[in-house]
Amino acid sequence: MTATATAANPPIADPAALVRKQARAATRKALGASLLTFLLTLVGVTVLWQLALWFSDLSPYVAKGPVDVWNFFFVEEEAAANRAEIAGNLAVTLGDAVIGFAAGLLLALLGAIGFRLSRGFEQAMMPIALLLRSVPLVAFAPIIIMIFGREFLTVAVMGGIVVLFPALVNIAFGLQQSSQQTLEVVQVYGGGPIKQLTKVALPASLPAFFAAVRVSVPGAITGALLAEWLATGSGIGGVINGYATSAKFDELWASVVLVTLTSLVLYNLVAILENTVLARMGMHPTKRL
């Protein structure tokens, strides 16, 4: 009797194990999709680069293609010295980008939380954010340099300005997407605005936060290049004009290619992290920007 019942009613699989299995499958799928997108992006950029050179009819002395840059880094007799020079400049630029990224993203997060908690704060601060977004950074640069000098603070301010607005908009949007019913439940149990923020709004905004980080990574590199070009004179942004004026076109193209490749790599690393984390949490990433 027991054997018959067991055969007719097989044991139910462990629900927790099933959830873990589904999470691992979702993670593998998200990781594979992200890596495929990254590889296709690299191939697409390289093809477009070469096609642009073919159809632009520029002199090979000035316009360098993928093969020229590869030879500069790995084939020429001075390839090791070339790599060391460009990599040293890139390291400085990445350090500056980290400063701008941290400053801009932190301000964006604090600003978005302020918007969520106070409508008056949003009405007061959003015009300032729009002003920083609409006025070219080149116009602000002399004032920023005059106030903060040409060192760390200027890099943080310029990089933060570039990162701030898109990150602020993404995070603020995400904080507004939390379920009203869930917020009301927290309120019924005595939770105030802070409790609603920490228990409901912030977790629900995780996809938007990752979107903000994803957009901020290339923005931070752009801000670092601008700060180096306009203020500090270091890193890739500081030397690139010198390469152009001294007709060092191999160095110029290699620098541009390396910083572009770095931006693509970092962007896609964030996308992979985003897809992996959200897949394990059963959430979906926001639309790619």
Rank of each mutant, 00 (worst) to 15 (best):
D68Q: 08
P207V: 02
F165M: 11
N241V: 10
V259P: 04
A279C: 01
L51P: 09
T37G: 15
A220H: 06
H284P: 06
L42M: 12
P15F: 01
F115T: 07
Q176C: 06
N9A: 11
I194Q: 11
Y243L: 00
A17S: 13
F121D: 12
T46P: 03
T154L: 07
A8D: 12
A79T: 08
W54R: 15
M158G: 03
K21N: 13
A13F: 11
W54F: 13
G88C: 00
V98S: 10
V265Y: 04
V265A: 09
F72T: 01
A80C: 07
I12L: 14
V185C: 03
A84S: 15
I144F: 10
I272M: 13
L110P: 04
F121E: 10
A211I: 02
S255Y: 08
I236T: 04
A271T: 10
F38L: 08
T198V: 14
G282I: 06
P207I: 05
A23S: 12
A108K: 00
A84I: 11
V259G: 00
I194C: 09
I240Y: 02
L130P: 07
A3Y: 10
A247R: 02
Y189Q: 12
M1Y: 11
H284W: 09
A16I: 11
I147S: 11
A156L: 06
F38G: 03
A52I: 09
D57K: 15
A227Q: 02
I236N: 00
S59L: 04
G88Q: 02
P142S: 05
K199D: 10
F140T: 01
I171N: 06
W229R: 13
R116A: 14
I12A: 15
L264S: 02
A81T: 14
V185H: 02
A279R: 00
L53Y: 00
E76H: 11
T46M: 15
V185W: 05
S59G: 08
P11L: 11
G191C: 02
L289Y: 11
T276H: 09
M1D: 10
A84H: 12
T2H: 12
Q177C: 02
K29Y: 12
Q123V: 13
G159V: 07
V256F: 14
I86R: 01
A231H: 08
V67Q: 14
T2P: 06
V162K: 04
F55V: 14
I128C: 04
I144H: 07
P15N: 02
T93A: 06
L94T: 10
T46D: 12
V75D: 12
I236S: 03
D14M: 07
S216M: 01
V67L: 15
L202K: 02
G282F: 04
L107N: 07
P142N: 05
T232E: 04
V270S: 03
V257Y: 13
E85W: 14
L258C: 08
R20F: 12
V215M: 09
M158H: 08
